[in-house]
Write a protein that binds this DNA or RNA. Structure first.
Length: 424
RNA sequence: GGAGGGAUGGCCGAGAGGCUGAAGGCGCUCCCCUGCUAAGGGAGUAUGGGCUUUAUCUCCCAUCGAGGGUUCGAACCCCUCUCUCUCCGCCA
Protein backbone atom coordinates (compact mmCIF):
# COMPACT_ATOMS: atom_id res chain seq x y z
CA UNK A 1 0.00 0.00 0.00
CA UNK A 2 1.26 3.44 -0.89
CA UNK A 3 0.90 6.46 1.34
CA UNK A 4 -2.45 8.13 0.57
CA UNK A 5 -0.83 11.49 1.37
CA UNK A 6 1.50 10.97 -1.56
CA UNK A 7 -1.52 10.85 -3.85
CA UNK A 8 -2.84 14.10 -2.43
CA UNK A 9 0.37 16.06 -2.49
CA UNK A 10 2.47 14.57 -5.30
CA UNK A 11 0.09 13.03 -7.73
CA UNK A 12 2.27 13.73 -10.76
CA UNK A 13 5.21 11.96 -9.16
CA UNK A 14 3.03 8.95 -8.37
CA UNK A 15 1.69 8.86 -11.93
CA UNK A 16 5.19 8.99 -13.41
CA UNK A 17 6.43 6.28 -11.07
CA UNK A 18 3.55 3.95 -11.78
CA UNK A 19 4.06 4.51 -15.49
CA UNK A 20 7.52 2.95 -15.10
CA UNK A 21 5.72 -0.27 -14.27
CA UNK A 22 3.27 0.20 -17.12
CA UNK A 23 0.59 0.47 -14.48
CA UNK A 24 -2.40 2.34 -15.85
CA UNK A 25 -3.53 4.66 -13.10
CA UNK A 26 -6.67 6.68 -13.68
CA UNK A 27 -5.73 9.84 -11.81
CA UNK A 28 -8.90 11.74 -12.71
CA UNK A 29 -11.14 9.02 -11.37
CA UNK A 30 -9.02 8.87 -8.26
CA UNK A 31 -9.24 12.62 -7.68
CA UNK A 32 -12.98 12.60 -8.17
CA UNK A 33 -13.34 9.82 -5.62
CA UNK A 34 -10.96 11.49 -3.19
CA UNK A 35 -12.87 14.78 -3.41
CA UNK A 36 -16.09 12.95 -2.75
CA UNK A 37 -14.50 11.14 0.17
CA UNK A 38 -13.44 14.39 1.75
CA UNK A 39 -16.91 15.93 1.42
CA UNK A 40 -18.73 12.91 2.73
CA UNK A 41 -16.29 12.32 5.54
CA UNK A 42 -16.49 15.90 6.79
CA UNK A 43 -20.26 15.83 6.59
CA UNK A 44 -20.46 12.49 8.37
CA UNK A 45 -18.22 13.65 11.16
CA UNK A 46 -20.23 16.81 11.59
CA UNK A 47 -23.41 14.80 11.92
CA UNK A 48 -21.73 12.48 14.39
CA UNK A 49 -20.61 15.49 16.36
CA UNK A 50 -24.20 16.77 16.44
CA UNK A 51 -25.52 13.41 17.54
CA UNK A 52 -22.94 13.20 20.31
CA UNK A 53 -23.64 16.66 21.71
CA UNK A 54 -27.40 16.11 21.47
CA UNK A 55 -27.12 12.85 23.34
CA UNK A 56 -25.00 14.54 25.95
CA UNK A 57 -27.53 17.35 26.35
CA UNK A 58 -30.34 14.86 26.80
CA UNK A 59 -28.34 13.02 29.39
CA UNK A 60 -27.65 16.19 31.34
CA UNK A 61 -31.24 17.36 31.15
CA UNK A 62 -32.42 14.01 32.40
CA UNK A 63 -30.00 14.12 35.29
CA UNK A 64 -31.49 17.43 36.36
CA UNK A 65 -34.99 15.99 36.03
CA UNK A 66 -35.99 18.30 33.20
CA UNK A 67 -38.39 17.37 30.43
CA UNK A 68 -36.35 15.91 27.56
CA UNK A 69 -39.16 15.58 25.05
CA UNK A 70 -38.43 18.88 23.23
CA UNK A 71 -34.81 17.84 22.77
CA UNK A 72 -35.82 14.39 21.59
CA UNK A 73 -38.06 15.89 18.93
CA UNK A 74 -35.21 18.07 17.81
CA UNK A 75 -32.87 15.15 17.09
CA UNK A 76 -35.41 12.80 15.60
CA UNK A 77 -34.54 13.70 12.04
CA UNK A 78 -30.81 13.32 12.51
CA UNK A 79 -30.72 9.55 12.59
CA UNK A 80 -31.61 8.82 8.99
CA UNK A 81 -29.35 11.48 7.59
CA UNK A 82 -26.44 10.23 9.66
CA UNK A 83 -27.02 6.64 8.70
CA UNK A 84 -27.10 7.55 5.01
CA UNK A 85 -23.89 9.54 5.30
CA UNK A 86 -22.14 6.73 7.18
CA UNK A 87 -23.20 4.17 4.62
CA UNK A 88 -21.98 6.36 1.79
CA UNK A 89 -18.66 6.98 3.53
CA UNK A 90 -18.14 3.28 4.13
CA UNK A 91 -18.83 2.58 0.48
CA UNK A 92 -16.39 5.24 -0.72
CA UNK A 93 -13.70 4.08 1.66
CA UNK A 94 -14.13 0.50 0.51
CA UNK A 95 -13.82 1.62 -3.09
CA UNK A 96 -10.69 3.64 -2.37
CA UNK A 97 -9.25 0.77 -0.41
CA UNK A 98 -9.84 -1.55 -3.31
CA UNK A 99 -8.09 0.87 -5.69
CA UNK A 100 -5.19 1.46 -3.31
CA UNK A 101 -4.61 -2.20 -2.59
CA UNK A 102 -4.31 -2.88 -6.31
CA UNK A 103 -1.55 -0.31 -6.85
CA UNK A 104 2.04 -1.66 -6.87
CA UNK A 105 4.95 -0.22 -4.93
CA UNK A 106 6.97 2.71 -6.25
CA UNK A 107 10.27 1.53 -7.66
CA UNK A 108 13.65 2.54 -6.30
CA UNK A 109 15.51 5.05 -8.52
CA UNK A 110 18.17 2.43 -9.21
CA UNK A 111 15.72 0.08 -10.93
CA UNK A 112 16.37 0.06 -14.68
CA UNK A 113 13.59 0.54 -17.22
CA UNK A 114 12.32 -2.46 -19.15
CA UNK A 115 9.28 -4.61 -19.58
CA UNK A 116 10.56 -8.12 -18.87
CA UNK A 117 13.56 -10.17 -17.79
CA UNK A 118 15.43 -9.24 -20.98
CA UNK A 119 16.14 -5.85 -19.43
CA UNK A 120 17.42 -7.10 -16.08
CA UNK A 121 20.84 -5.76 -15.26
CA UNK A 122 23.73 -8.05 -14.39
CA UNK A 123 25.46 -6.65 -11.30
CA UNK A 124 28.09 -9.25 -10.62
CA UNK A 125 29.20 -12.78 -11.36
CA UNK A 126 30.85 -15.31 -9.06
CA UNK A 127 32.63 -18.59 -9.91
CA UNK A 128 33.61 -20.22 -13.16
CA UNK A 129 31.21 -22.65 -14.84
CA UNK A 130 32.89 -26.03 -14.82
CA UNK A 131 34.16 -27.42 -18.12
CA UNK A 132 32.77 -30.91 -18.68
CA UNK A 133 34.70 -33.48 -20.72
CA UNK A 134 31.43 -35.36 -21.19
CA UNK A 135 27.87 -34.38 -21.91
CA UNK A 136 26.36 -32.98 -18.71
CA UNK A 137 23.00 -34.54 -17.87
CA UNK A 138 20.15 -32.56 -16.38
CA UNK A 139 18.73 -33.31 -12.94
CA UNK A 140 15.77 -35.25 -14.32
CA UNK A 141 18.00 -37.83 -16.04
CA UNK A 142 20.41 -37.91 -13.13
CA UNK A 143 17.55 -38.33 -10.64
CA UNK A 144 15.96 -41.14 -12.63
CA UNK A 145 19.25 -42.98 -12.98
CA UNK A 146 19.87 -42.69 -9.24
CA UNK A 147 16.30 -43.81 -8.54
CA UNK A 148 15.94 -40.87 -6.19
CA UNK A 149 13.61 -38.51 -8.03
CA UNK A 150 10.25 -39.69 -9.35
CA UNK A 151 7.84 -37.35 -11.09
CA UNK A 152 5.42 -40.07 -12.19
CA UNK A 153 5.01 -41.14 -8.60
CA UNK A 154 4.32 -37.53 -7.65
CA UNK A 155 1.68 -37.38 -10.36
CA UNK A 156 0.07 -40.61 -9.15
CA UNK A 157 -0.07 -39.51 -5.54
CA UNK A 158 -1.19 -35.97 -6.24
CA UNK A 159 -0.96 -34.69 -9.81
CA UNK A 160 1.39 -32.97 -12.20
CA UNK A 161 4.19 -30.80 -10.84
CA UNK A 162 4.79 -32.82 -7.71
CA UNK A 163 7.81 -34.99 -7.06
CA UNK A 164 8.88 -37.79 -4.75
CA UNK A 165 12.48 -37.77 -3.58
CA UNK A 166 14.00 -40.93 -2.27
CA UNK A 167 17.02 -42.06 -0.29
CA UNK A 168 20.22 -40.09 -0.70
CA UNK A 169 18.64 -37.33 -2.82
CA UNK A 170 15.99 -36.70 -0.16
CA UNK A 171 18.78 -36.57 2.38
CA UNK A 172 20.81 -34.26 0.15
CA UNK A 173 17.94 -31.78 0.09
CA UNK A 174 17.73 -31.96 3.88
CA UNK A 175 21.49 -31.42 4.13
CA UNK A 176 21.16 -28.33 1.95
CA UNK A 177 18.45 -26.98 4.24
CA UNK A 178 20.57 -27.71 7.31
CA UNK A 179 23.55 -25.88 5.83
CA UNK A 180 21.41 -22.85 5.10
CA UNK A 181 19.75 -22.72 8.53
CA UNK A 182 23.03 -23.19 10.36
CA UNK A 183 24.82 -20.58 8.28
CA UNK A 184 22.15 -17.94 8.71
CA UNK A 185 21.72 -18.52 12.44
CA UNK A 186 25.36 -19.01 13.37
CA UNK A 187 27.12 -16.64 10.97
CA UNK A 188 24.54 -14.03 10.01
CA UNK A 189 22.66 -13.52 13.25
CA UNK A 190 19.18 -14.65 12.20
CA UNK A 191 16.73 -16.22 14.63
CA UNK A 192 15.29 -19.53 13.49
CA UNK A 193 11.50 -19.57 13.47
CA UNK A 194 8.82 -22.15 12.90
CA UNK A 195 5.49 -20.84 11.65
CA UNK A 196 2.08 -22.00 10.40
CA UNK A 197 1.98 -23.13 6.78
CA UNK A 198 -1.69 -22.27 6.48
CA UNK A 199 -2.49 -18.57 6.84
CA UNK A 200 -5.57 -16.39 6.88
CA UNK A 201 -6.52 -13.73 4.34
CA UNK A 202 -5.37 -10.85 6.59
CA UNK A 203 -1.81 -12.18 6.55
CA UNK A 204 -1.81 -12.48 2.76
CA UNK A 205 -3.14 -8.95 2.43
CA UNK A 206 -0.38 -7.77 4.73
CA UNK A 207 2.41 -9.02 2.50
CA UNK A 208 0.62 -8.17 -0.74
CA UNK A 209 -0.46 -11.53 -2.20
CA UNK A 210 -4.10 -10.61 -1.75
CA UNK A 211 -6.31 -9.30 -3.18
CA UNK A 212 -4.54 -9.32 -6.54
CA UNK A 213 -2.86 -12.69 -6.74
CA UNK A 214 -5.34 -15.15 -5.32
CA UNK A 215 -5.03 -17.30 -8.46
CA UNK A 216 -1.43 -18.15 -7.52
CA UNK A 217 -2.49 -19.58 -4.15
CA UNK A 218 -3.88 -22.87 -2.94
CA UNK A 219 -6.97 -22.23 -0.87
CA UNK A 220 -8.16 -24.72 1.70
CA UNK A 221 -11.91 -25.23 1.84
CA UNK A 222 -12.28 -24.18 5.43
CA UNK A 223 -14.29 -21.59 7.29
CA UNK A 224 -12.79 -19.03 7.48
CA UNK A 225 -10.74 -19.37 4.30
CA UNK A 226 -7.16 -20.47 4.83
CA UNK A 227 -4.40 -20.57 2.27
CA UNK A 228 -1.27 -22.69 1.92
CA UNK A 229 1.69 -20.34 2.13
CA UNK A 230 3.40 -19.50 -1.20
CA UNK A 231 6.51 -18.56 0.81
CA UNK A 232 7.49 -18.31 4.48
CA UNK A 233 7.68 -14.56 3.90
CA UNK A 234 3.94 -14.44 4.58
CA UNK A 235 3.75 -15.95 8.08
CA UNK A 236 7.16 -14.63 9.14
CA UNK A 237 6.61 -11.00 8.07
CA UNK A 238 3.16 -11.10 9.67
CA UNK A 239 4.86 -11.65 13.03
CA UNK A 240 5.07 -7.85 13.21
CA UNK A 241 1.57 -7.10 11.91
CA UNK A 242 -0.14 -4.54 14.19
CA UNK A 243 2.95 -4.33 16.37
CA UNK A 244 4.82 -1.24 17.55
CA UNK A 245 8.45 -2.28 17.99
CA UNK A 246 10.83 -0.52 20.38
CA UNK A 247 13.79 1.04 18.58
CA UNK A 248 16.30 -1.06 20.48
CA UNK A 249 14.67 -4.28 19.24
CA UNK A 250 15.54 -3.47 15.63
CA UNK A 251 16.61 -4.99 13.37
CA UNK A 252 14.55 -8.16 13.69
CA UNK A 253 16.12 -10.98 11.70
CA UNK A 254 14.30 -14.24 11.06
CA UNK A 255 15.24 -17.35 9.13
CA UNK A 256 12.62 -19.96 8.40
CA UNK A 257 12.55 -23.21 6.51
CA UNK A 258 9.18 -24.10 5.07
CA UNK A 259 7.49 -25.82 2.21
CA UNK A 260 6.00 -23.41 -0.31
CA UNK A 261 2.85 -24.00 -2.30
CA UNK A 262 2.13 -22.23 -5.56
CA UNK A 263 -0.80 -22.81 -7.80
CA UNK A 264 0.54 -20.58 -10.58
CA UNK A 265 -2.52 -21.07 -12.71
CA UNK A 266 -1.57 -20.33 -16.28
CA UNK A 267 2.11 -21.11 -15.81
CA UNK A 268 1.79 -24.43 -17.62
CA UNK A 269 3.96 -24.70 -20.69
CA UNK A 270 6.85 -22.98 -18.99
CA UNK A 271 9.64 -24.93 -17.34
CA UNK A 272 7.56 -28.08 -17.53
CA UNK A 273 10.53 -30.39 -17.17
CA UNK A 274 11.79 -31.43 -13.78
CA UNK A 275 11.88 -29.70 -10.44
CA UNK A 276 12.30 -26.14 -11.65
CA UNK A 277 8.67 -25.18 -11.27
CA UNK A 278 6.69 -27.27 -8.83
CA UNK A 279 3.46 -26.75 -6.91
CA UNK A 280 5.34 -27.63 -3.72
CA UNK A 281 8.96 -26.91 -2.90
CA UNK A 282 11.22 -26.34 0.08
CA UNK A 283 12.75 -22.98 0.79
CA UNK A 284 14.79 -21.27 3.48
CA UNK A 285 13.64 -17.68 3.78
CA UNK A 286 15.43 -14.81 5.48
CA UNK A 287 13.42 -11.81 6.64
CA UNK A 288 14.49 -8.54 8.21
CA UNK A 289 12.46 -5.78 9.85
CA UNK A 290 14.52 -2.60 9.98
CA UNK A 291 14.49 1.15 10.50
CA UNK A 292 13.76 2.98 7.25
CA UNK A 293 17.22 4.57 7.15
CA UNK A 294 18.83 1.11 7.17
CA UNK A 295 16.89 -0.70 4.49
CA UNK A 296 19.12 0.09 1.50
CA UNK A 297 22.23 -1.14 3.31
CA UNK A 298 20.43 -4.18 4.71
CA UNK A 299 19.19 -5.09 1.23
CA UNK A 300 22.81 -5.45 0.14
CA UNK A 301 23.70 -7.41 3.27
CA UNK A 302 20.76 -9.73 3.02
CA UNK A 303 21.53 -10.48 -0.61
CA UNK A 304 25.12 -11.20 0.38
CA UNK A 305 23.83 -13.61 3.04
CA UNK A 306 22.05 -15.58 0.34
CA UNK A 307 25.18 -15.46 -1.84
CA UNK A 308 27.20 -16.98 1.00
CA UNK A 309 25.32 -20.25 0.56
CA UNK A 310 26.12 -20.42 -3.14
CA UNK A 311 29.75 -19.67 -2.38
CA UNK A 312 29.93 -22.36 0.29
CA UNK A 313 28.54 -24.81 -2.24
CA UNK A 314 30.93 -23.46 -4.84
CA UNK A 315 28.11 -22.95 -7.32
CA UNK A 316 28.69 -20.31 -10.01
CA UNK A 317 26.06 -17.60 -9.99
CA UNK A 318 25.32 -14.07 -10.99
CA UNK A 319 23.42 -11.27 -9.31
CA UNK A 320 20.78 -9.50 -11.37
CA UNK A 321 19.01 -6.24 -10.62
CA UNK A 322 15.46 -6.70 -11.84
CA UNK A 323 14.11 -4.13 -14.26
CA UNK A 324 10.87 -2.20 -13.74
CA UNK A 325 8.67 -4.71 -15.54
CA UNK A 326 10.12 -7.75 -13.76
CA UNK A 327 10.05 -6.36 -10.21
CA UNK A 328 7.30 -7.84 -8.07
CA UNK A 329 4.14 -5.98 -7.06
CA UNK A 330 5.18 -5.18 -3.48
CA UNK A 331 8.89 -4.67 -4.03
CA UNK A 332 10.74 -1.39 -4.52
CA UNK A 333 13.96 -3.11 -5.59
CA UNK A 334 14.81 -6.75 -6.16
CA UNK A 335 18.02 -8.66 -6.76
CA UNK A 336 17.71 -12.14 -8.22
CA UNK A 337 20.51 -14.62 -7.75
CA UNK A 338 20.83 -16.98 -10.69
CA UNK A 339 22.74 -20.23 -10.41
CA UNK A 340 24.57 -21.91 -13.25
CA UNK A 341 22.84 -25.03 -14.58
CA UNK A 342 25.31 -26.78 -16.91
CA UNK A 343 22.87 -29.12 -18.66
CA UNK A 344 20.93 -26.22 -20.11
CA UNK A 345 23.91 -23.91 -20.10
CA UNK A 346 21.96 -21.11 -18.45
CA UNK A 347 21.75 -19.19 -15.21
CA UNK A 348 18.46 -19.88 -13.40
CA UNK A 349 16.83 -17.97 -10.58
CA UNK A 350 17.53 -19.54 -7.19
CA UNK A 351 16.92 -16.58 -4.92
CA UNK A 352 15.02 -13.33 -4.96
CA UNK A 353 15.96 -10.63 -2.46
CA UNK A 354 13.65 -7.65 -2.13
CA UNK A 355 13.41 -4.38 -0.28
CA UNK A 356 9.74 -3.55 0.20
CA UNK A 357 10.50 -0.33 2.04
CA UNK A 358 7.27 0.70 3.84
CA UNK A 359 4.86 -0.88 1.33
CA UNK A 360 4.21 -4.07 3.31
CA UNK A 361 4.62 -2.25 6.61
CA UNK A 362 1.75 0.10 5.78
CA UNK A 363 -0.55 -2.81 4.97
CA UNK A 364 0.65 -4.63 8.06
CA UNK A 365 0.64 -1.57 10.32
CA UNK A 366 4.10 -2.72 11.39
CA UNK A 367 5.74 0.19 13.17
CA UNK A 368 8.57 1.18 15.44
CA UNK A 369 8.74 3.97 17.96
CA UNK A 370 11.16 6.58 16.70
CA UNK A 371 12.90 7.96 19.79
CA UNK A 372 13.50 11.28 18.02
CA UNK A 373 9.81 11.94 17.44
CA UNK A 374 8.34 9.63 20.08
CA UNK A 375 5.83 8.60 17.42
CA UNK A 376 5.12 5.22 15.85
CA UNK A 377 6.50 5.17 12.31
CA UNK A 378 6.42 2.49 9.65
CA UNK A 379 9.31 0.03 9.53
CA UNK A 380 10.88 -1.26 6.35
CA UNK A 381 10.62 -4.95 5.50
CA UNK A 382 12.97 -7.07 3.42
CA UNK A 383 13.26 -10.69 2.55
CA UNK A 384 15.14 -13.08 0.37
CA UNK A 385 15.35 -16.75 -0.42
CA UNK A 386 18.38 -18.08 1.26
CA UNK A 387 17.93 -20.21 -0.85
CA UNK A 388 15.25 -22.16 -2.68
CA UNK A 389 16.21 -25.66 -1.55
CA UNK A 390 14.67 -27.60 -4.43
CA UNK A 391 16.52 -25.57 -7.01
CA UNK A 392 19.70 -25.78 -4.96
CA UNK A 393 19.36 -29.57 -5.05
CA UNK A 394 19.12 -29.41 -8.84
CA UNK A 395 22.14 -27.14 -9.06
CA UNK A 396 24.24 -29.40 -6.82
CA UNK A 397 23.25 -32.48 -8.82
CA UNK A 398 24.03 -30.94 -12.18
CA UNK A 399 27.25 -29.18 -11.17
CA UNK A 400 28.67 -32.07 -9.13
CA UNK A 401 27.91 -34.95 -11.50
CA UNK A 402 30.57 -37.15 -13.01
CA UNK A 403 30.69 -39.05 -16.30
CA UNK A 404 28.92 -42.03 -14.69
CA UNK A 405 26.05 -39.92 -13.46
CA UNK A 406 27.15 -40.02 -9.84
CA UNK A 407 26.84 -36.98 -7.59
CA UNK A 408 29.85 -35.93 -5.53
CA UNK A 409 28.80 -34.30 -2.29
CA UNK A 410 30.11 -30.71 -1.94
CA UNK A 411 32.43 -30.30 0.98
CA UNK A 412 30.14 -27.92 2.81
CA UNK A 413 27.42 -30.61 2.90
CA UNK A 414 29.60 -33.50 4.07
CA UNK A 415 28.88 -32.89 7.78
CA UNK A 416 25.18 -33.46 7.09
CA UNK A 417 25.44 -36.58 4.93
CA UNK A 418 26.38 -39.16 7.53
CA UNK A 419 29.62 -40.21 5.90
CA UNK A 420 28.26 -40.39 2.35
CA UNK A 421 30.58 -38.68 -0.16
CA UNK A 422 29.15 -39.84 -3.48
CA UNK A 423 25.59 -40.64 -4.46
CA UNK A 424 25.50 -43.52 -6.90
C1' G B 1 -16.66 -33.03 19.40
C1' G B 2 -19.62 -31.71 24.37
C1' A B 3 -20.47 -28.24 28.84
C1' G B 4 -19.30 -23.77 31.12
C1' G B 5 -16.23 -19.03 32.01
C1' G B 6 -13.67 -14.95 29.77
C1' A B 7 -11.59 -10.87 26.11
C1' U B 8 -11.03 -3.15 28.68
C1' G B 9 -4.59 1.12 27.51
C1' G B 10 2.74 -1.38 27.72
C1' C B 11 0.96 -4.88 31.99
C1' C B 12 -2.69 -5.88 36.03
C1' G B 13 -7.53 -4.38 36.85
C1' A B 14 -12.42 -1.28 37.98
C1' G B 15 -16.56 -0.13 35.18
C1' A B 16 -23.23 -3.27 34.72
C1' G B 17 -27.16 2.58 29.49
C1' G B 18 -25.47 9.39 29.93
C1' C B 19 -20.37 13.81 33.04
C1' U B 20 -15.90 7.14 30.96
C1' G B 21 -11.15 7.39 25.90
C1' A B 22 -11.95 5.02 30.29
C1' A B 23 -11.00 4.81 38.22
C1' G B 24 -6.93 2.55 40.82
C1' G B 25 -2.27 0.04 40.74
C1' C B 26 2.36 -1.44 38.25
C1' G B 27 5.80 -0.01 34.57
C1' C B 28 8.05 3.91 31.75
C1' U B 29 9.59 9.38 30.83
C1' C B 30 10.60 14.23 32.82
C1' C B 31 11.00 17.47 37.14
C1' C B 32 11.62 18.28 42.56
C1' C B 33 13.82 16.40 47.05
C1' U B 34 18.36 13.62 48.59
C1' G B 35 26.00 13.25 50.23
C1' C B 36 25.19 8.00 47.57
C1' U B 37 21.47 4.16 47.47
C1' A B 38 16.57 3.40 48.94
C1' A B 39 12.17 5.91 50.01
C1' G B 40 9.11 10.32 49.01
C1' G B 41 6.51 14.54 46.14
C1' G B 42 4.75 16.58 41.29
C1' A B 43 3.67 16.20 36.01
C1' G B 44 3.16 13.26 31.76
C1' U B 45 2.27 8.46 29.39
C1' A B 46 -3.08 4.52 23.54
C1' U B 47 -3.85 4.31 18.25
C1' G B 48 -5.87 5.69 13.59
C1' G B 49 -8.31 9.46 10.83
C1' G B 50 -10.38 14.50 9.64
C1' C B 51 -9.76 19.86 9.34
C1' U B 52 -5.43 23.14 8.25
C1' U B 53 -0.76 25.37 2.55
C1' U B 54 2.85 22.45 5.88
C1' A B 55 4.19 21.50 11.05
C1' U B 56 2.79 21.85 16.22
C1' C B 57 -1.13 22.83 19.64
C1' U B 58 -6.26 23.37 20.14
C1' C B 59 -10.58 21.29 17.87
C1' C B 60 -13.61 17.24 15.63
C1' C B 61 -14.52 11.81 14.45
C1' A B 62 -13.53 6.63 15.35
C1' U B 63 -11.67 2.63 18.33
C1' C B 64 -12.89 -1.29 25.23
C1' G B 65 -11.51 -9.02 20.58
C1' A B 66 -14.29 -8.47 15.26
C1' G B 67 -18.86 -7.49 12.69
C1' G B 68 -24.08 -6.41 12.91
C1' G B 69 -28.52 -4.73 15.90
C1' U B 70 -31.58 -1.98 19.79
C1' U B 71 -31.38 3.32 21.64
C1' C B 72 -31.60 10.36 21.42
C1' G B 73 -27.16 7.98 23.61
C1' A B 74 -23.59 1.41 24.12
C1' A B 75 -17.19 -0.79 27.04
C1' C B 76 -22.13 -1.86 29.39
C1' C B 77 -28.26 -4.70 26.43
C1' C B 78 -29.25 -8.36 22.00
C1' C B 79 -27.34 -11.46 17.69
C1' U B 80 -23.24 -13.69 14.79
C1' C B 81 -18.14 -14.77 14.53
C1' U B 82 -12.95 -15.16 16.31
C1' C B 83 -9.63 -16.11 20.06
C1' U B 84 -8.78 -17.82 24.99
C1' C B 85 -9.33 -20.52 29.88
C1' U B 86 -11.45 -24.86 32.83
C1' C B 87 -13.59 -29.80 32.67
C1' C B 88 -14.98 -34.22 29.62
C1' G B 89 -14.03 -37.00 24.97
C1' C B 90 -10.46 -38.00 21.05
C1' C B 91 -5.34 -37.72 19.65
C1' A B 92 0.88 -37.41 17.19
Amino acid sequence: MLDPRLFRTELDFVKAQLARRNFAFDADAYIALETRRKDVQVKTQELQNQRNSNAKAIGQAKAKGEDVQPLMNQVAALGDELKAAETELTRIQAEMDSIMSGIPNILDEAVPAGKDEESNLEISRWGEPRQFDFEAKDHVDLGAQLKGMDFELGAKITGSRFVVLNGALARLQRAIIQLMLNTHTEEHGYTETYVPFLVNADSLRGTGQLPKFEADLFKASSDPDLYLIPTAEVPVTNIVRDVIIEAKELPLKFVCHSPCFRSEAGAYGRDVRGMIRQHQFEKVEIVQIVKPEDSARVHEELTAHAETILQKLNLPYRRMLLCAGDTGFSSAKTYDLEVWLPAQGVYREISSCSNFKDFQARRLQARWRNPETGKPELVHTLNGSGLAAGRTLIAVMENYQDADGRIHIPEALLPYMGGLTVIS
